[in-house]
Every structure is written in C-alpha cells, then in structure tokens.
Design a protein around this nucleic acid. Structure first.
Length: 616
DNA sequence: GTGTCACGCGCG
DNA sequence: AAAGCGCGCGTGACAC
C-alpha cells in the first residue's frame, strides 16, 4: 500500500550574487519532489523559455497546497519574490532545513547544504568544482557558467534540499517543543525578510563630514605616533604593527607587561593609561579607534543603496550555539555608540544613522534581561521574591549585603578602607555618587557570583580586603544559596548529557570540557528566545494595526528598533501600550519582563525618554 | 596575488 | 578596569 505523499517540494535558486536587496537577480531555479525527481528551469536565454519558466515559478508559488522546503529559505524566497514582483512568504508554508540543522545540532560547526548532505547521506561534494574552476577563470558569476555544467549541480542541490528535509523534519516533529520553536523560527524568517527590505537609513553628508574629521585627526595622531616611536627606538613604527608596538611599550619604555605582550585596549592600554600615563598610549588609542571608525563608516556608505538605505543580512540562527541572531553586510548590531566610558576617543557612528524622512526611531530594550534570566534559571527563592516585588532593585539589595555599616571591630581592623564603604550602602540615598558607586560594584558582583567567581575576585570587584570579602560573600551565599549553587548543577547536567535545554525547549549543546559556560549559554538563549518571539508578535500586530506603516528595523539581542511615522504620533500611546503587552507576556519566565522605550528624531545616537499613556 | 590565522574591538 | 560569554569585521603577518 502506498503511503500518502506529503505535499512538499524543494526549491533551490541560482542568482547572480548574494544581495537580494541589491542588484542581484535570480537566473535559474531547480525543483525536487518528494521522491527525488528533479527539474531545472532557466529564467534567461530567450524570451519563450523565460516567459514559460516565469509562469511555472509563479504557479509553483501560487499553489498553496504545496509546502516549500529550502535550505536558507530567506535567501531563495527573497529572490523568488523579486523575480515575480510580489510577496510570497506570508501566504506560503515554507520550510528551512538550515534552521532545522541548527535546532537539532547546535554544536555542528558548519551548517552548509553540501557538507550536511555529504555527512548525513553520503552525497559527494565534487559537483561544484567544475563551476568554481570556470567562474575563477572568467571572473564572472554563475549565470555565465555554461548551462550543462550548471545543470549537474542544480539537480543535485535540489535533491540535497529535499533529502535534508526528509531527514530532519521528522526529528523536529518528534519533539513538540522543537516543533513549536521551529514554527516560531519560520515566522521570524518572514519578519526578518521585511526588516531587511525596510532597511536602516544613513545620513550620507553627516557620515562624510564625520569621516573627514576623523581622517584628519587620525593623520595627525599617526604622524605623532611614528615620530615618537622613531625617537625612542630609532625605527618608524606604525600603530597597526602590533608586535612592534608591544616591543615599544614593554621593551623600550619598560611599561609593565600586564597580559603577556598583548596591547589590547581594555586589559592593557586603559589600565596603563591610568597608572603610567605616556603620550604614546593615548596616541595609540586614538589611532586604533579612529582608524576603525573611518573604515566602518566607509563600509556603511558602501552598503547604502541610492536612497541611502542599508539592507543588512540578518541571520536568525547566526549564533549557532545559543540561538541568538547575528547581522552582517554590514553588522548593524555593533555600530559604535558615543559616550561609551570604555573608549576615551570614540568614533560616533550612531550619529550617522537617521530616521527616514517623516519618521522617528523607537529603540525598545528589555531591562536587565541577563540578570532576570540568571535568577529565573537559578530558581533562587529570595532573589525571585525581590524581582517580583513592586519597585524591586536586586542590585541595591546586594549592595546592602556587601556593604553593611562597619562594626567597631571592622573599623579597627580595616580603617584604611574608603569612607563610603565604611559607612555602608544604607548611609546613602539615590542620586548620591556614593550610592551609584557602591550599587555598581554590587551589581558587577551580582553577575560575577552566579558565574562562579570566588571571594578573592569578589573582593577585588567590591574594593574590600580579602578577609572582609570572605565574610561578606559567606553572607551573600547563605542568603542566595541557589543563585551561587546553580552553576554546579548545570555543569553536572552538561557533563552527563552534553547539552542543556532552555526554558522554551531549545537544546543547546555544550562541550563537556567547557561545562562552566552553561549558565551563560542558558541566559543568552532564554533572552534570545524572548526577543525573537517579541519580533514575531510585534510584527504581526503592526501589520494588522498599521498596515506596516510602523515596522521593526533591527533586533540587537535584548532590544528592538522600531521605525514610526510622525503622522501616527497621536496613536503612539495605544500602539506602545499594545507593544508593551506583547513584549512582556512570557509565562515561561518566573520573573517579570520589563521594557524601556526611547525616541530618536535626529539620529540613532540622540535619544529621549519615551513615555506613553498609562505608564509612569 | 589568495587564503588563513591571531589579534583587536565594536555591540549585546 | 574588574566575572563570563556570543557574534562580525578590519588589520597585519605569514604561508602558499
């Protein structure tokens, strides 16, 4: 008896390049049905064939009884949409074995179709060699490769795509949690396609002006650096020559070598700058930062289209190990902020990004995501209670424990400790600089403790002597036993089964020799899960409520950036109220989620608080 | 010239 | 500055 054939077909597209939002187009596609029957269709080379195959492609996508499976579905779907000139994703059931591969084995190093098909089904990997040889020879894209060469490879790629679907999808279906996450991921892909298309606008003139200023300052600083280095060593050393710079600092100038010859900013240059100020250190910091700034700004301009809009490539499973997203070409998740205390000579790149004309930007970020998830994961009763208290402040709570007023005995033994610490945290009110200082140290320790730091390091963070730190840590440990103890249990789990499962059912493989990474992976992945769901929910809502006049531009791990037309500003209270609800409703979490919204009218860098009706 | 590596650094 | 981790990308150094 024949089994019913699932209505799934695989499609693989061939394109002139990798930029679906740019000038690249699709010139051919191949299909494979459930049984492995493949076909190749050219969309170039003569009007008759072109018209026929265009119509066939349209028919393929219009038939909603067929589910479409792809490998990296966002890529193929975007090119099909571009070719057919209409939206396809929203009204189709699409599958993606690239996503499945990530969900099933997050520890896999490569998730490439050819590699997977070789590893899982023994399909040889040699079919692309002839094409690559050809492309290299004439320096052209695949559309110029002779058709007979392309065909062999296209048949096989369509077949691989179907094989991967047939191999992996049952494994996804077998686990209800996997299936739920997979469906969310497929929704997210559709959302991400629209985000990429919308793109982020750069202010061209402002960028050019900023680059000109940075280049000028950079030239001066470089000149000075080379001159001084020559004076000291007799040799012209440039700031980029790390090995020579290391020699200059530690051999010639005999500055203390803090990290085995490394000249990295945070670990070496900034501490040196405080303790042994030397003009060469600041010059080096300036040269590095500004050179980096200039080249990043230049690359942003390169990526911008003729409307000054950047369409990045967002990989929804970019961080294979944690479920986080990544962004490339360019990476808009690491655009430099100004006012970063860690860089004394910044390049203010976010100033160069602007809202589209007649729009504002609304960055919405989750407050204290990582800490919330750490506390949830640990299940620590007392800390959970603090998070669930109205007006809670876990870092102040910790500050009260780490910094009680000194006893007489402590005053005698540790009289050299600074005044603020001796008086204790309770002696200060919000707004005072001592309050902030002590709370910040307690906050850092609150993070460090669950990650397993000992009392020696804690004492260093807290700025108190070791014997005192030992005592205070013991009090902290007694008060929050599960918070400091959860890492052990998690590590045990990883050593036993090689993976952990986050609070949404996603499986995270962790190398048992690196089991200590458990808590970090868990916190990152739970946070990622929330932000991903937030995007799907908010996009769906904005589509229905505003016909996509309001839309998401970007997600940055615990933050989403929204584009909002000025003409709808009168509705902002309602819309933000609904977004707030969608972004914070997560029964999976035993701690409340909170968001903070800001508002940018001029640039991404210049933010004001955004308060909407009904929220204090 | 092309590819790979380690480093450094931006964001979270 | 300080406890841990995840990404992308520009650079210089080095092998081929």
């Amino acid at each position: 008896m024949a089994l019913p054939i699932p209505p799934v077909q695989a499609i693989d597209t061939e394109t002139t390049g990798l930029a679906p939002h740019g000038s690249d187009t699709m010139f051919s596609y191949s299909l494979c049905d459930w049984d492995g029957k493949t076909s190749v269709h050219r969309l170039d080379g003569g009007p008759i064939r072109q018209t026929t195959n265009h119509a066939n492609l349209d028919k393929f996508w219009s038939d909603t009884s067929i589910e479409k499976t792809m490998f990296n579905a966002k890529f193929d779907t975007l090119f099909c949409e571009k070719k057919l000139g209409k939206r396809l994703a929203e009204q189709s059931v699409i599958h993606d074995s690239y996503i499945m591969s990530h969900l099933l084995r997050s520890d896999r190093k490569v998730h490439k179709l050819k590699e997977l098909a070789w590893e899982l089904a023994g399909i040889p990997r040699d079919d692309e060699q002839a094409i690559h040889a050809y492309v290299r020879g004439v320096e052209e894209n695949f559309s110029h490769v002779p058709e007979h060469l392309m065909e062999i490879y296209q048949h096989r790629d369509a077949e691989r795509t179907m094989l991967m679907h047939r191999y992996m999808y049952p494994q996804i279906q077998a686990n209800p949690k996997f299936l739920e996450i997979y469906k969310m991921e497929m929704d997210l892909i559709k959302v991400t396609m629209r985000m990429e298309k919308r793109g982020m606008m750069i202010h061209r003139q402002r960028t050019l002006d900023t680059m000109a200023k940075l280049e000028k300052d950079l030239a001066l600083a470089t000149q000075e650096f080379v001159t001084i280095s020559e004076k000291i060593t007799g040799q012209r050393i440039f700031p980029g020559q790390t090995a020579k710079v290391s020699k200059l600092l530690f051999k010639y100038l005999k500055l203390p070598d803090l990290a085995d010859g490394s000249t990295s900013k945070d670990d070496v240059l900034l501490p040196l700058r405080e303790q042994h100020p030397h003009p060469i250190i600041d010059l080096l910091l300036k040269c590095r930062s500004w050179k980096h700034g200039v080249s990043m700004l230049a690359s942003y301009l390169d990526y911008a289209d003729d409307t000054d809009t950047i369409h990045p490539s967002i990989n929804t499973c970019g961080a294979g190990s944690t479920g986080r997203e990544s962004c490339s070409k360019p990476n808009l998740q690491n655009v430099e902020k100004d006012g970063n205390l860690k860089n004394p000579f910044p390049s203010p790149a976010r100033l160069c990004f602007r809202p589209r004309p007649d729009h504002i930007l609304i960055p919405i970020d989750y407050a204290g995501q990582e800490m919330r998830w750490i506390v949830h994961i640990s299940g620590d009763k007392r800390m959970l209670a603090e998070f669930n208290r109205v007006g809670s402040d876990p870092h102040s709570l910790a500050a009260g424990i780490f910094y009680p007023p000194f006893t007489e005995e402590e005053e005698r033994d540790f009289h050299f400790v600074n005044d603020a610490i001796r008086k204790g945290f309770s002696a200060f009110k919000k707004g005072q600089k001592e309050f902030k200082m002590l709370r910040d140290s307690a906050k850092n320790t609150n993070f460090a403790k669950p990650y397993g730091c000992n009392f020696v390091k804690a004492g260093f963070i807290l700025g108190i002597p070791e014997p005192l730190s030992k005592k205070r840590c013991a009090e902290y440990d007694a008060m929050f036993p599960d918070l400091v103890g959860c890492l052990r249990n998690g590590m045990q789990e990883v050593r036993e089964c090689g993976y952990t499962t986050n609070d949404f059912g996603r499986r995270l493989y962790i190398n048992p020799s690196e089991a200590y990474m458990w808590l970090n992976y868990r916190a990152q992945s739970d946070g990622a899960e929330v932000t991903k769901r937030a995007q799907v929910r908010v996009h769906k809502y904005l589509r229905e409520a505003t016909s996509e006049e309001v839309g998401i531009l970007l997600a940055i791990h615990d933050e989403i950036l929204i584009e909002y037309p000025r003409k709808r500003l009168k509705d902002i209270g309602d819309i933000m109220g609904n977004i707030h609800k969608l972004m914070t409703t997560f029964p999976e979490a035993s701690v409340p989620m909170e968001i903070e919204a800001k508002l940018c009218t001029v640039s991404w860098a210049q933010k004001r608080e955004l308060v909407w009706k009904g929220v204090a």
